[in-house]
Computed example of a mutant assay.
Amino acid sequence: MDFFDTFPEPAPPPEPAPAPPRPAWVRPDAALPAAMAENAILVHEERLAIAIGGLSVYPNGFDFSIHIRTRDDSEEINPHGRRRDYVRNTVRADTDPEQNLRVGVLFADGRRAASNQPRPHDTPDNEADPDEVVLLSSRGGGGGRSYDLTYWIHPLPPDGAVTIVVSWLAQGVTEARCELDGAAIRAAAEKAVQLWPDEPLRGWVGEPR
């Protein structure tokens, strides 16, 4: 008998667990969004500008971009609180998250959400109340004098004003607002193309998509 034949056969690998149901608030993977050119400058100061970029509207929500520009050459301004001082070649973190960039949304019916509030995927079942507004930072980056960030909002808003609110206390921005047209966003959603049904999220660990 061969040496290795004396060892017991390894147990077969377990069957993969079925994927959980796809949360209703997740941005679709299998849809082509409709574009809306909703550009608006919220802040335009001597050394800092913040603007809202175009919207990408999906059947169950929309995302929009925030563009940050600065003229300061000595220190990198980071919306998440880290600063790089190019003169001293150091990086430091602001300890108070309330000083960092905060983004909020207010629907015409009073529902609202903010980027510094608990997220649905922080809950045990990864779900949210169907009527709850979800606002998530979905992607973005930058450095130096330029940052571009994207935020996802679910569900589609009712008719009326959709107010985007930005605060950045570390940069002296207490609150800046702009209004989008909820009816126009809903109309754009009708032009989004669902290519095929979205599949369950394999490997779902609660991260925004």
Rank of each mutant, 00 (worst) to 15 (best):
Arg92Met: 04
Arg88Ser: 13
Arg84Asn: 11
Gly53Lys: 12
Pro79Ser: 14
Asn78Pro: 01
Thr70Leu: 05
Glu75Trp: 05
Arg84Leu: 06
Thr70Glu: 13
Pro59Glu: 14
Asp96Cys: 07
Arg47Gly: 13
Arg82Asp: 11
Pro59Val: 01
Asp94Trp: 09
His67Phe: 12
Asn89Pro: 04
Asp73Gln: 14
Leu48Asp: 07
Glu98Thr: 13
Thr90Cys: 07
Val91Lys: 09
Phe62Cys: 00
Ile68Arg: 10
Glu98Cys: 10
Glu76Phe: 14
Asp94His: 14
Ile68Ser: 06
Thr70Phe: 06
Arg47Lys: 08
Ser74Met: 09
Asp96His: 07
Asp63Ser: 06
Ile68Thr: 13
His67Asp: 15
Thr90Trp: 02
Asp73His: 15
Tyr86Gly: 09
Pro79Tyr: 07
Tyr86Ala: 12
Asp72Cys: 07
Ile66Pro: 07
Val91Thr: 14
Asn89Gly: 03
Glu98Trp: 09
Arg82Leu: 10
Ala51Leu: 13
Phe64Ile: 02
Arg83Gln: 08
Ile50Asn: 12
Pro97Gln: 10
Gln99Ile: 04
Arg92Asp: 05
Ala93Lys: 07
Val87Gly: 09
Pro97Ile: 11
Ile77Gly: 15
Thr90Glu: 08
Asp73Glu: 09
Ser56Trp: 02
Phe64Trp: 08
Leu55Trp: 04
Arg84Thr: 10
Ile77Asp: 04
Val57Lys: 00
Val87Trp: 05
Ile68Asn: 08
